[in-house]
Simulated scan of single mutants.
Amino acid sequence: MAGILDSVNQRTQLVGQNRLELLLFRLNGRQRFGINVFKVKEVLQCPKLSALPQRNAVIKGVANIRGQTISIIDISKAMGGRPVEQTDTSFVIISEYNRSVQGFLVSSVERIVNMNWEDILPPPKGTGRSNYMTAVTEIDGELVEILDVEKILDEISPREVNVKQELVDEVSDLKSATQKPILVADDSSVARRQIQKTLESLGIECIVVENGKLALNKLRELAENGPILDQLSMVISDVEMPEMDGYTLTAEIRNSAALKDLHIILHTSLSGVFNKALIEKVGANNFIAKFHPDELATAVKAAF
């Protein structure tokens, strides 16, 4: 797998171009899956795994990789499929999501493809709430599923979504400012639920959409009814979303005379590749890594 990953600095050149790179892999069978290369730290042959007592059934074991003990998750089993049995011929994708590093056990890893987010589409209607897709695309005439990793991780280890009471009290002192809703854009059903519950605990109404394109359409619709700041207090957006990513959404907002003054918080699981310069480059006001309810509440409070 040497050389399969480009450097983070090279990948950040995609920022603002509505593009991404997908690492393609397979589990048990012919179906291809994809994961954003931004979230991948390393790909390696599955190392020797050590069992953990009383571990979650979908955790195949733990491995010591470059001095760090990392849980190895059998994605196929986590999604209700057949477990990956032959670990000695399998691969591990080491990734960083929501401030944690974990390994995903997969049968094979293929290649990286550079794509436009416009070619990444929401899951087909009718797939149901139990599916593990955030998006789909077509590569080489085959359907590729982009997994809702946040949902998988939340089922293994649910995240706390309650805000500390003192923060709730502090935000309630800003009651007049919180009368206006917040627009939330995120393609993960788990993330939408987490954010919505956090905001509602602060007494803040939210308008929730599944991607940047829907968010921009909603903003333009609201702007036709009058000044946008009279109708919304801010936008909280994921970065990775089908059809239009959070970077492009931010750029579109900043380039619109009717929308440009909106406060924008990027809220993303891409926690390992961001810095102040990158946030300024895309034109957002703030960036917070998923998911910590108190940090989200603090960022919202600071924007009022």
Rank of each mutant, 00 (worst) to 15 (best):
R111Q: 05
Q196C: 14
N211C: 08
L229E: 11
I139C: 04
S157F: 06
I207C: 03
R55N: 15
N9L: 13
L147F: 07
D169I: 13
S71R: 14
D294E: 06
R129Q: 12
G81F: 01
S189H: 10
V106C: 02
S107G: 13
L183Y: 05
R129K: 11
D154E: 15
A57L: 14
I59P: 03
I253Q: 08
D261L: 08
P124R: 00
S71V: 11
I72S: 11
K175E: 08
L153Q: 04
T127D: 02
I73T: 15
N131P: 00
C46G: 04
I120Q: 01
S188G: 07
L44V: 12
D154W: 07
I94V: 12
A135T: 09
N36Y: 10
I207S: 11
K39R: 10
K175L: 01
A191G: 14
N28E: 14
V113A: 00
V43Y: 02
N275E: 07
V209W: 07
K260S: 14
V273L: 14
S237A: 11
T250L: 08
N285E: 08
D119K: 01
G141R: 14
D88Q: 10
R26W: 09
G29S: 12
V101D: 01
E240F: 05
I112S: 00
Y247E: 07
Q45R: 13
T298I: 13
D261Y: 09
C206S: 15
R254T: 12
E155F: 04
K39C: 01
D140M: 10
Q68F: 12
P123L: 00
I59L: 12
Q86E: 12
N36L: 10
K77L: 15
T178D: 01
D119E: 03
L52C: 05
T137I: 02
I139T: 04
E21M: 05
S172H: 13
D148F: 02
L202N: 07
A177C: 09
Y97D: 04
Q194P: 02
I112A: 00
